[in-house]
Design a protein around this nucleic acid. Structure first.
Ligand SMILES: [Mn+2]
Ligand SMILES: [Mn+2]
Ligand SMILES: [Mn+2]
Ligand SMILES: [Mn+2]
Lengths: 224, 224
DNA sequence: TAATTATTTTAGATTCGCCTAAAATATTAT
DNA sequence: ATAATATTTTAGGCGAATCTAAAATAATTA
Protein backbone atom coordinates (compact mmCIF):
# COMPACT_ATOMS: atom_id res chain seq x y z
CA UNK A 1 0.00 0.00 0.00
CA UNK A 2 3.03 2.30 0.22
CA UNK A 3 2.84 4.57 -2.75
CA UNK A 4 6.24 6.07 -3.68
CA UNK A 5 4.91 8.55 -6.19
CA UNK A 6 6.74 11.33 -7.97
CA UNK A 7 5.99 14.93 -7.07
CA UNK A 8 4.35 15.29 -10.46
CA UNK A 9 2.06 12.32 -9.88
CA UNK A 10 1.10 13.71 -6.48
CA UNK A 11 0.22 17.07 -8.00
CA UNK A 12 -2.04 15.41 -10.55
CA UNK A 13 -3.76 13.34 -7.86
CA UNK A 14 -4.40 16.40 -5.73
CA UNK A 15 -5.72 18.38 -8.69
CA UNK A 16 -8.14 15.60 -9.60
CA UNK A 17 -9.25 15.39 -5.98
CA UNK A 18 -10.06 19.10 -5.80
CA UNK A 19 -11.83 19.11 -9.14
CA UNK A 20 -14.03 16.19 -8.26
CA UNK A 21 -15.05 17.90 -5.01
CA UNK A 22 -17.11 20.35 -7.05
CA UNK A 23 -17.57 18.60 -10.38
CA UNK A 24 -17.99 14.92 -9.66
CA UNK A 25 -16.59 13.59 -12.91
CA UNK A 26 -13.37 15.28 -13.97
CA UNK A 27 -12.23 16.12 -17.50
CA UNK A 28 -8.83 16.23 -19.15
CA UNK A 29 -9.05 19.93 -19.92
CA UNK A 30 -9.94 20.87 -16.34
CA UNK A 31 -6.83 19.15 -15.03
CA UNK A 32 -4.70 20.68 -17.78
CA UNK A 33 -5.91 24.14 -16.87
CA UNK A 34 -5.42 23.67 -13.14
CA UNK A 35 -1.87 22.40 -13.54
CA UNK A 36 -0.92 24.84 -16.30
CA UNK A 37 -0.09 22.02 -18.65
CA UNK A 38 -1.55 20.63 -21.87
CA UNK A 39 -4.32 18.11 -22.43
CA UNK A 40 -1.94 15.70 -24.13
CA UNK A 41 0.25 15.60 -21.02
CA UNK A 42 -2.77 14.91 -18.86
CA UNK A 43 -3.77 11.96 -21.02
CA UNK A 44 -0.27 10.52 -20.66
CA UNK A 45 -0.43 10.83 -16.90
CA UNK A 46 -3.93 9.37 -16.73
CA UNK A 47 -2.70 6.22 -18.40
CA UNK A 48 0.02 5.94 -15.78
CA UNK A 49 -2.31 6.58 -12.85
CA UNK A 50 -4.83 4.18 -14.30
CA UNK A 51 -2.20 1.45 -14.54
CA UNK A 52 -1.43 2.07 -10.87
CA UNK A 53 -5.13 1.84 -9.98
CA UNK A 54 -5.15 5.36 -8.63
CA UNK A 55 -7.77 6.64 -11.02
CA UNK A 56 -10.78 5.10 -12.78
CA UNK A 57 -10.28 6.07 -16.36
CA UNK A 58 -11.88 5.08 -19.65
CA UNK A 59 -10.91 6.84 -22.86
CA UNK A 60 -13.02 9.88 -23.68
CA UNK A 61 -15.27 9.19 -20.66
CA UNK A 62 -13.71 11.40 -18.00
CA UNK A 63 -12.36 9.93 -14.76
CA UNK A 64 -12.43 9.93 -10.95
CA UNK A 65 -10.05 8.89 -8.21
CA UNK A 66 -10.18 5.29 -6.97
CA UNK A 67 -10.40 4.59 -3.24
CA UNK A 68 -6.63 4.33 -3.12
CA UNK A 69 -6.35 7.57 -5.07
CA UNK A 70 -8.62 9.38 -2.67
CA UNK A 71 -6.55 8.20 0.30
CA UNK A 72 -3.38 9.47 -1.32
CA UNK A 73 -5.03 12.79 -2.15
CA UNK A 74 -6.20 13.23 1.43
CA UNK A 75 -2.73 12.58 2.79
CA UNK A 76 -1.32 15.27 0.51
CA UNK A 77 -4.06 17.74 1.44
CA UNK A 78 -3.39 16.92 5.08
CA UNK A 79 0.29 17.76 4.71
CA UNK A 80 -0.45 20.90 2.72
CA UNK A 81 -2.81 22.32 5.31
CA UNK A 82 -0.72 21.31 8.32
CA UNK A 83 2.30 23.05 6.83
CA UNK A 84 0.23 26.14 6.08
CA UNK A 85 -0.90 26.20 9.69
CA UNK A 86 2.70 25.80 10.84
CA UNK A 87 3.88 28.64 8.64
CA UNK A 88 1.25 31.04 9.90
CA UNK A 89 1.10 30.08 13.57
CA UNK A 90 4.74 29.30 14.27
CA UNK A 91 6.74 31.16 11.66
CA UNK A 92 4.57 34.28 11.48
CA UNK A 93 3.87 34.11 7.77
CA UNK A 94 0.88 36.04 6.45
CA UNK A 95 -2.00 33.81 5.37
CA UNK A 96 -1.55 35.10 1.85
CA UNK A 97 2.08 33.92 1.67
CA UNK A 98 1.85 30.28 2.61
CA UNK A 99 0.16 28.52 -0.27
CA UNK A 100 3.14 28.37 -2.62
CA UNK A 101 5.52 27.18 0.08
CA UNK A 102 3.08 24.49 1.21
CA UNK A 103 2.85 23.43 -2.42
CA UNK A 104 6.44 22.22 -2.01
CA UNK A 105 6.33 21.05 1.60
CA UNK A 106 3.34 18.77 0.94
CA UNK A 107 5.65 16.45 -1.01
CA UNK A 108 8.03 15.66 1.84
CA UNK A 109 7.52 11.94 2.24
CA UNK A 110 8.29 11.12 5.89
CA UNK A 111 5.14 9.82 7.60
CA UNK A 112 6.73 10.34 10.98
CA UNK A 113 7.30 13.98 10.15
CA UNK A 114 3.61 14.61 9.47
CA UNK A 115 2.50 12.99 12.69
CA UNK A 116 5.12 14.78 14.78
CA UNK A 117 4.23 18.06 13.14
CA UNK A 118 0.54 17.50 13.82
CA UNK A 119 1.30 16.84 17.48
CA UNK A 120 3.59 19.87 17.70
CA UNK A 121 0.77 22.03 16.33
CA UNK A 122 -1.67 20.42 18.76
CA UNK A 123 -3.87 18.80 16.13
CA UNK A 124 -5.39 21.84 14.42
CA UNK A 125 -8.74 21.28 12.72
CA UNK A 126 -8.60 24.11 10.16
CA UNK A 127 -5.90 25.69 8.06
CA UNK A 128 -5.35 29.47 7.82
CA UNK A 129 -7.86 29.75 4.98
CA UNK A 130 -10.60 28.00 6.95
CA UNK A 131 -10.25 24.68 5.14
CA UNK A 132 -10.54 21.55 7.28
CA UNK A 133 -7.39 19.49 7.91
CA UNK A 134 -7.85 15.73 7.37
CA UNK A 135 -6.63 13.61 10.31
CA UNK A 136 -4.38 10.53 10.01
CA UNK A 137 -7.33 8.52 8.73
CA UNK A 138 -8.42 11.15 6.24
CA UNK A 139 -11.38 12.27 8.33
CA UNK A 140 -12.07 15.97 8.60
CA UNK A 141 -14.52 18.21 10.38
CA UNK A 142 -17.49 19.12 8.29
CA UNK A 143 -18.16 22.79 8.74
CA UNK A 144 -21.69 23.80 7.73
CA UNK A 145 -21.09 27.00 5.86
CA UNK A 146 -22.86 29.04 3.23
CA UNK A 147 -21.71 31.46 0.61
CA UNK A 148 -21.92 35.07 1.74
CA UNK A 149 -24.24 35.77 -1.19
CA UNK A 150 -26.76 33.36 0.38
CA UNK A 151 -26.71 35.01 3.80
CA UNK A 152 -29.94 36.91 4.50
CA UNK A 153 -29.56 40.60 5.48
CA UNK A 154 -29.28 41.52 9.18
CA UNK A 155 -28.08 38.09 10.30
CA UNK A 156 -24.77 38.02 12.14
CA UNK A 157 -22.29 35.62 10.58
CA UNK A 158 -18.62 34.76 10.85
CA UNK A 159 -16.18 34.22 7.99
CA UNK A 160 -15.13 30.56 7.96
CA UNK A 161 -13.32 30.12 4.67
CA UNK A 162 -12.26 31.73 1.43
CA UNK A 163 -12.96 30.34 -2.02
CA UNK A 164 -9.41 30.59 -3.37
CA UNK A 165 -5.84 31.17 -2.20
CA UNK A 166 -4.98 33.61 -4.94
CA UNK A 167 -2.65 36.42 -3.92
CA UNK A 168 -5.09 38.86 -5.48
CA UNK A 169 -8.00 37.76 -3.28
CA UNK A 170 -5.93 37.63 -0.12
CA UNK A 171 -4.44 41.03 -0.82
CA UNK A 172 -7.92 42.52 -1.19
CA UNK A 173 -9.14 40.83 1.99
CA UNK A 174 -6.17 42.11 3.94
CA UNK A 175 -6.93 45.64 2.72
CA UNK A 176 -10.60 45.32 3.69
CA UNK A 177 -9.55 43.82 7.06
CA UNK A 178 -11.53 40.64 6.44
CA UNK A 179 -10.03 37.38 7.72
CA UNK A 180 -11.14 33.98 8.99
CA UNK A 181 -13.23 34.66 12.10
CA UNK A 182 -14.29 38.17 11.12
CA UNK A 183 -17.92 38.94 12.10
CA UNK A 184 -20.09 40.20 9.24
CA UNK A 185 -23.64 41.51 8.77
CA UNK A 186 -25.23 42.17 5.39
CA UNK A 187 -26.88 45.57 5.31
CA UNK A 188 -28.22 45.66 1.79
CA UNK A 189 -28.03 43.79 -1.52
CA UNK A 190 -27.97 45.76 -4.76
CA UNK A 191 -29.65 43.98 -7.61
CA UNK A 192 -28.05 46.08 -10.33
CA UNK A 193 -24.58 44.53 -9.98
CA UNK A 194 -25.17 42.09 -7.09
CA UNK A 195 -22.85 44.10 -4.94
CA UNK A 196 -23.46 43.87 -1.19
CA UNK A 197 -23.21 46.42 1.57
CA UNK A 198 -21.70 44.80 4.63
CA UNK A 199 -20.71 45.91 8.11
CA UNK A 200 -17.92 44.59 10.29
CA UNK A 201 -17.66 45.12 14.04
CA UNK A 202 -16.65 48.67 15.05
CA UNK A 203 -16.49 49.83 11.46
CA UNK A 204 -18.58 51.84 9.06
CA UNK A 205 -20.50 49.84 6.46
CA UNK A 206 -19.00 49.49 2.99
CA UNK A 207 -19.83 47.80 -0.26
CA UNK A 208 -18.12 44.78 -1.79
CA UNK A 209 -18.40 43.35 -5.29
CA UNK A 210 -20.30 40.24 -6.25
CA UNK A 211 -16.99 38.53 -7.07
CA UNK A 212 -15.63 39.18 -3.60
CA UNK A 213 -18.86 38.11 -1.89
CA UNK A 214 -18.79 34.84 -3.81
CA UNK A 215 -15.29 34.16 -2.55
CA UNK A 216 -16.38 34.34 1.09
CA UNK A 217 -17.97 31.56 3.11
CA UNK A 218 -19.65 32.15 6.47
CA UNK A 219 -21.53 30.41 9.23
CA UNK A 220 -24.41 32.06 11.06
CA UNK A 221 -23.55 33.10 14.58
CA UNK A 222 -26.02 33.03 17.50
CA UNK A 223 -26.81 36.74 17.80
CA UNK A 224 -25.84 37.17 21.43
CA UNK B 1 22.21 35.46 -9.27
CA UNK B 2 19.01 33.54 -8.50
CA UNK B 3 19.77 29.96 -9.19
CA UNK B 4 16.67 27.84 -9.87
CA UNK B 5 18.39 24.49 -9.79
CA UNK B 6 16.86 21.04 -9.84
CA UNK B 7 16.98 18.87 -6.74
CA UNK B 8 19.45 16.65 -8.56
CA UNK B 9 21.77 19.54 -9.34
CA UNK B 10 21.60 20.68 -5.72
CA UNK B 11 22.54 17.22 -4.49
CA UNK B 12 25.58 17.17 -6.77
CA UNK B 13 26.67 20.61 -5.61
CA UNK B 14 26.38 19.62 -1.97
CA UNK B 15 28.29 16.38 -2.55
CA UNK B 16 31.12 18.23 -4.27
CA UNK B 17 31.18 20.75 -1.44
CA UNK B 18 31.55 18.07 1.21
CA UNK B 19 34.17 16.16 -0.73
CA UNK B 20 36.31 19.22 -1.29
CA UNK B 21 36.22 20.02 2.45
CA UNK B 22 38.52 17.06 3.04
CA UNK B 23 40.09 16.38 -0.36
CA UNK B 24 40.63 19.76 -1.99
CA UNK B 25 40.35 18.62 -5.58
CA UNK B 26 37.39 16.32 -6.20
CA UNK B 27 37.22 13.36 -8.58
CA UNK B 28 34.43 11.90 -10.67
CA UNK B 29 34.49 8.56 -8.89
CA UNK B 30 34.26 10.13 -5.44
CA UNK B 31 31.08 11.95 -6.41
CA UNK B 32 29.67 8.85 -8.08
CA UNK B 33 30.23 6.84 -4.93
CA UNK B 34 28.77 9.47 -2.62
CA UNK B 35 25.59 9.83 -4.69
CA UNK B 36 25.25 6.12 -5.48
CA UNK B 37 25.40 6.78 -9.18
CA UNK B 38 27.84 6.02 -12.00
CA UNK B 39 30.90 7.95 -13.18
CA UNK B 40 29.33 8.54 -16.58
CA UNK B 41 26.36 10.29 -14.98
CA UNK B 42 28.69 12.48 -12.96
CA UNK B 43 30.53 13.56 -16.09
CA UNK B 44 27.20 14.51 -17.69
CA UNK B 45 26.28 16.63 -14.70
CA UNK B 46 29.72 18.22 -14.51
CA UNK B 47 29.30 19.53 -18.04
CA UNK B 48 25.99 21.06 -17.05
CA UNK B 49 27.33 22.63 -13.87
CA UNK B 50 30.38 23.86 -15.73
CA UNK B 51 28.18 25.56 -18.33
CA UNK B 52 26.37 27.28 -15.46
CA UNK B 53 29.67 28.38 -13.92
CA UNK B 54 28.97 26.48 -10.74
CA UNK B 55 32.04 24.29 -10.96
CA UNK B 56 35.55 24.72 -12.37
CA UNK B 57 36.01 21.71 -14.52
CA UNK B 58 38.58 20.61 -17.07
CA UNK B 59 38.41 17.14 -18.58
CA UNK B 60 40.35 14.49 -16.72
CA UNK B 61 41.70 17.11 -14.31
CA UNK B 62 39.24 16.89 -11.44
CA UNK B 63 37.18 19.88 -10.37
CA UNK B 64 36.17 22.26 -7.58
CA UNK B 65 33.20 24.51 -6.89
CA UNK B 66 33.32 28.07 -8.19
CA UNK B 67 32.58 30.97 -5.83
CA UNK B 68 28.95 30.86 -6.95
CA UNK B 69 28.91 27.10 -6.45
CA UNK B 70 30.25 27.42 -2.94
CA UNK B 71 27.56 29.96 -2.07
CA UNK B 72 24.86 27.64 -3.34
CA UNK B 73 26.34 24.72 -1.44
CA UNK B 74 26.43 26.72 1.78
CA UNK B 75 22.79 27.71 1.42
CA UNK B 76 21.82 24.06 1.03
CA UNK B 77 23.95 23.01 4.00
CA UNK B 78 22.38 25.84 5.98
CA UNK B 79 18.89 24.59 5.22
CA UNK B 80 19.83 20.98 5.91
CA UNK B 81 21.23 21.73 9.34
CA UNK B 82 18.50 24.17 10.35
CA UNK B 83 15.86 21.59 9.50
CA UNK B 84 17.75 18.93 11.46
CA UNK B 85 17.83 21.25 14.45
CA UNK B 86 14.11 21.91 14.05
CA UNK B 87 13.28 18.21 13.86
CA UNK B 88 15.25 17.39 17.02
CA UNK B 89 14.48 20.45 19.13
CA UNK B 90 10.87 21.13 18.17
CA UNK B 91 9.48 17.85 16.88
CA UNK B 92 11.32 15.54 19.28
CA UNK B 93 13.02 13.42 16.65
CA UNK B 94 16.07 11.42 17.70
CA UNK B 95 19.33 12.76 16.28
CA UNK B 96 19.75 9.50 14.40
CA UNK B 97 16.44 9.94 12.54
CA UNK B 98 16.74 13.39 11.03
CA UNK B 99 19.31 13.12 8.29
CA UNK B 100 17.13 11.49 5.64
CA UNK B 101 14.23 13.86 6.24
CA UNK B 102 16.52 16.90 6.07
CA UNK B 103 17.85 15.49 2.81
CA UNK B 104 14.41 16.31 1.37
CA UNK B 105 13.64 19.48 3.31
CA UNK B 106 16.91 21.13 2.24
CA UNK B 107 15.46 21.50 -1.26
CA UNK B 108 12.47 23.65 -0.32
CA UNK B 109 13.24 26.84 -2.18
CA UNK B 110 11.57 29.69 -0.25
CA UNK B 111 14.24 32.08 1.06
CA UNK B 112 11.74 33.63 3.42
CA UNK B 113 11.07 30.21 4.94
CA UNK B 114 14.72 29.67 5.83
CA UNK B 115 15.05 33.04 7.49
CA UNK B 116 11.79 32.70 9.43
CA UNK B 117 12.78 29.21 10.51
CA UNK B 118 16.17 30.44 11.66
CA UNK B 119 14.50 33.17 13.74
CA UNK B 120 11.96 30.71 15.16
CA UNK B 121 14.81 28.45 16.27
CA UNK B 122 16.63 31.47 17.70
CA UNK B 123 19.62 31.30 15.38
CA UNK B 124 21.24 28.03 16.41
CA UNK B 125 24.96 27.73 15.74
CA UNK B 126 25.27 23.93 15.60
CA UNK B 127 23.09 21.11 14.30
CA UNK B 128 22.29 17.97 16.34
CA UNK B 129 25.45 16.26 15.10
CA UNK B 130 27.69 19.11 16.20
CA UNK B 131 28.17 20.53 12.72
CA UNK B 132 28.15 24.33 12.43
CA UNK B 133 25.16 26.00 10.74
CA UNK B 134 26.12 28.64 8.15
CA UNK B 135 24.36 32.00 8.65
CA UNK B 136 22.59 33.96 5.89
CA UNK B 137 25.95 35.03 4.51
CA UNK B 138 27.44 31.56 4.63
CA UNK B 139 29.56 32.30 7.66
CA UNK B 140 29.80 29.66 10.35
CA UNK B 141 31.44 29.27 13.73
CA UNK B 142 34.77 27.58 13.54
CA UNK B 143 34.96 25.06 16.33
CA UNK B 144 38.51 24.00 17.16
CA UNK B 145 38.17 20.27 17.61
CA UNK B 146 40.37 17.23 17.39
CA UNK B 147 39.75 13.61 16.64
CA UNK B 148 39.31 11.51 19.75
CA UNK B 149 42.25 9.38 18.64
CA UNK B 150 44.46 12.48 18.99
CA UNK B 151 43.35 13.31 22.51
CA UNK B 152 46.08 12.59 25.07
CA UNK B 153 45.11 10.29 27.98
CA UNK B 154 43.76 11.83 31.19
CA UNK B 155 42.63 15.07 29.58
CA UNK B 156 38.98 15.94 30.02
CA UNK B 157 37.23 16.59 26.74
CA UNK B 158 33.72 17.06 25.43
CA UNK B 159 32.20 15.47 22.34
CA UNK B 160 31.54 18.20 19.77
CA UNK B 161 30.71 16.32 16.58
CA UNK B 162 30.45 12.95 14.90
CA UNK B 163 32.17 11.98 11.70
CA UNK B 164 29.14 10.57 9.91
CA UNK B 165 25.37 10.48 10.16
CA UNK B 166 25.04 6.78 9.42
CA UNK B 167 22.27 4.99 11.28
CA UNK B 168 24.81 2.38 12.31
CA UNK B 169 27.09 4.89 14.02
CA UNK B 170 24.27 6.74 15.73
CA UNK B 171 22.73 3.50 16.95
CA UNK B 172 26.02 2.48 18.50
CA UNK B 173 26.48 5.90 20.13
CA UNK B 174 22.99 5.78 21.58
CA UNK B 175 23.73 2.36 23.05
CA UNK B 176 27.00 3.59 24.55
CA UNK B 177 25.23 6.74 25.81
CA UNK B 178 27.57 9.03 23.92
CA UNK B 179 26.09 12.22 22.46
CA UNK B 180 27.11 15.76 21.58
CA UNK B 181 28.22 17.37 24.86
CA UNK B 182 29.19 14.14 26.59
CA UNK B 183 32.35 14.49 28.73
CA UNK B 184 35.08 11.97 27.99
CA UNK B 185 38.49 11.01 29.39
CA UNK B 186 40.86 8.56 27.74
CA UNK B 187 42.17 6.02 30.23
CA UNK B 188 44.40 3.91 28.01
CA UNK B 189 45.26 3.29 24.39
CA UNK B 190 45.89 -0.23 23.17
CA UNK B 191 48.43 -0.45 20.42
CA UNK B 192 47.45 -3.91 19.27
CA UNK B 193 44.16 -2.84 17.66
CA UNK B 194 44.17 0.89 18.44
CA UNK B 195 41.18 0.44 20.67
CA UNK B 196 40.77 2.99 23.46
CA UNK B 197 39.59 2.69 27.01
CA UNK B 198 37.45 5.70 27.86
CA UNK B 199 35.46 6.87 30.86
CA UNK B 200 32.31 8.99 30.91
CA UNK B 201 31.01 10.85 33.94
CA UNK B 202 29.46 8.60 36.59
CA UNK B 203 30.18 5.47 34.62
CA UNK B 204 32.63 2.64 34.64
CA UNK B 205 35.36 2.78 32.01
CA UNK B 206 34.88 0.75 28.82
CA UNK B 207 36.72 0.15 25.60
CA UNK B 208 35.76 1.38 22.18
CA UNK B 209 37.10 0.37 18.78
CA UNK B 210 39.45 2.39 16.62
CA UNK B 211 36.64 2.88 14.11
CA UNK B 212 34.36 4.37 16.72
CA UNK B 213 37.08 6.60 18.16
CA UNK B 214 37.82 7.95 14.70
CA UNK B 215 34.19 8.91 14.29
CA UNK B 216 34.25 11.13 17.37
CA UNK B 217 35.48 14.72 17.57
CA UNK B 218 36.12 16.49 20.85
CA UNK B 219 37.33 19.74 22.33
CA UNK B 220 39.46 19.88 25.45
CA UNK B 221 37.58 21.16 28.47
CA UNK B 222 39.14 23.26 31.23
CA UNK B 223 39.51 20.64 33.96
CA UNK B 224 37.57 22.47 36.68
C1' DT C 1 -29.72 13.94 -39.65
C1' DA C 2 -25.70 16.03 -41.20
C1' DA C 3 -22.26 19.42 -40.56
C1' DT C 4 -19.54 22.07 -37.55
C1' DT C 5 -17.08 22.66 -33.41
C1' DA C 6 -14.97 21.19 -29.16
C1' DT C 7 -12.57 17.76 -26.63
C1' DT C 8 -9.56 14.06 -26.15
C1' DT C 9 -6.14 10.95 -27.68
C1' DT C 10 -2.17 9.55 -30.48
C1' DA C 11 2.17 10.32 -32.93
C1' DG C 12 6.47 12.06 -32.85
C1' DA C 13 10.05 15.19 -30.57
C1' DT C 14 12.64 17.25 -26.74
C1' DT C 15 14.98 17.66 -22.20
C1' DC C 16 16.64 15.67 -17.94
C1' DG C 17 18.86 12.24 -15.38
C1' DC C 18 20.34 7.84 -15.64
C1' DC C 19 22.50 3.53 -17.52
C1' DT C 20 26.11 0.14 -20.09
C1' DA C 21 29.78 -0.53 -23.14
C1' DA C 22 33.56 1.22 -25.55
C1' DA C 23 37.15 4.65 -26.26
C1' DA C 24 40.40 8.00 -24.42
C1' DT C 25 43.47 9.43 -21.06
C1' DA C 26 46.14 9.12 -16.83
C1' DT C 27 48.55 6.42 -13.42
C1' DT C 28 51.28 2.67 -11.73
C1' DA C 29 54.13 -1.25 -12.09
C1' DT C 30 57.63 -3.85 -14.48
C1' DA D 1 60.14 3.29 -21.47
C1' DT D 2 56.70 0.16 -22.07
C1' DA D 3 53.03 -2.44 -20.50
C1' DA D 4 49.24 -3.15 -17.46
C1' DT D 5 45.72 -1.04 -14.79
C1' DA D 6 42.67 2.48 -13.20
C1' DT D 7 40.01 6.49 -14.14
C1' DT D 8 37.36 9.38 -16.93
C1' DT D 9 34.89 10.52 -20.96
C1' DT D 10 32.06 9.56 -25.05
C1' DA D 11 28.53 7.11 -27.60
C1' DG D 12 24.19 5.45 -27.72
C1' DG D 13 19.91 4.32 -25.44
C1' DC D 14 16.01 4.40 -21.94
C1' DG D 15 12.11 6.22 -18.93
C1' DA D 16 9.69 10.27 -17.11
C1' DA D 17 7.41 14.38 -18.12
C1' DT D 18 6.63 17.67 -21.28
C1' DC D 19 5.34 19.85 -25.88
C1' DT D 20 3.07 20.60 -30.88
C1' DA D 21 0.48 18.88 -34.58
C1' DA D 22 -2.57 15.63 -36.36
C1' DA D 23 -6.17 12.12 -35.85
C1' DA D 24 -10.14 10.27 -33.39
C1' DT D 25 -14.17 10.85 -30.95
C1' DA D 26 -17.96 13.42 -28.72
C1' DA D 27 -21.06 17.25 -28.38
C1' DT D 28 -23.46 20.97 -30.45
C1' DT D 29 -25.78 23.42 -34.05
C1' DA D 30 -28.11 23.95 -38.23
MN1 LIG E 1 2.55 20.53 -4.92
MN1 LIG F 1 -5.11 26.50 2.59
MN1 LIG G 1 19.11 16.21 -0.75
MN1 LIG H 1 23.76 17.00 10.58
Amino acid sequence: MIANLSITEENYIKAIYHLQQTDGNVTTNEVAEMLHTKAASVTDMLKKLNAKNIVNYAKYQGFTLSDDGRKIALSIVRKHRLWEYFLVEKLQFGWDEVHEVAEELEHISSLKLVEKLDAFLEYPKFDPHGDPIPDVNGKMVYQPQINLTDLPPSELAEVTAVGSQSTELLELLKHKKIAIGTKIIIKKKFLFDNSIEIKLQNQAAFTISQQLAQALFVKKTPNE
